[in-house]
Computed example of a mutant assay.
Amino acid sequence: MIQPIARVASSLLSLYMMVIFIRIIMTWFRGVHYGRAYLFLTSITDPYLDWFRRNTPVRLGMMDFSPVVGILALGFAQNILTEVAHTGTVTMSFLLLVIVSSVWSVVSFFFTIFLILGLIRLAGILAGLDTGGGRFWIVIEQILNPVLQVVVRPFLRGRFTNYRDSLLIYCGVLLAVLVGGRFLLRFILALIGQIPF
């Protein structure tokens, strides 16, 4: 009896996640009037997303990552419901697998975003595209610099370096964390998979 209910609930969560993705993409195009469809989407997605905006500290400058956390929470619940739909039960080892995978998904998402921003900024410096101090580069630096300082500070040990070298260190560290984290994740998941309960 529980498996069909879990199957329906899992499908509904998948549909709701797609609706949230559509809502997020629509916010990228400010000034476009979507009409009633947009009002309907906001009425069913904003209460959920607003809860994460209020209760998760994942706003960095102008970038609000709370929808990512909200979607990951739905994904976590959907994974559990899918497991119940297939097996009828959820084991402790499965819950641990989902928790560890979800945490890594959040961490790797943020590291990837900041790595991409660092690479864009570095490419701009190397290509000489940022000589005018345009608005685009200013926005990227406003987002990037607080994280860059935290990442690079332990490697400089009080020494000063130019911005390009700091970006090289920053991108290298983030790339190493992403690659190393992926191997560590596989190792941890293999260990959890051996838990008998």
Rank of each mutant, 00 (worst) to 15 (best):
L156H: 08
F114K: 08
I140S: 00
R159G: 08
D130S: 12
L129D: 03
I116E: 00
P146M: 01
L129C: 07
G134Q: 09
G128N: 12
L148N: 11
W137Q: 14
V147D: 00
I143P: 00
F136N: 02
T161A: 14
T112V: 11
I125L: 14
I120N: 03
V106K: 00
F111V: 13
V139T: 03
L144C: 01
F160Q: 10
R153H: 14
I143Q: 01
T112E: 12
E141L: 09
V150Y: 03
S108R: 14
A127H: 04
V106Y: 14
I116D: 00
G134S: 14
L115V: 04
F111M: 15
T161P: 03
F114C: 09
S108Y: 13
V106D: 00
Q149H: 14
Q142W: 02
G128M: 03
I113L: 13
I116V: 11
N145A: 06
G134D: 11
L148R: 12
T131G: 11
P154E: 11
L117M: 12
N162G: 14
R135S: 13
R159C: 06
L115N: 00
V152T: 14
I143M: 09
R157W: 08
V150R: 05
I125V: 14
V151C: 06
V106T: 07
F109S: 08
D130P: 03
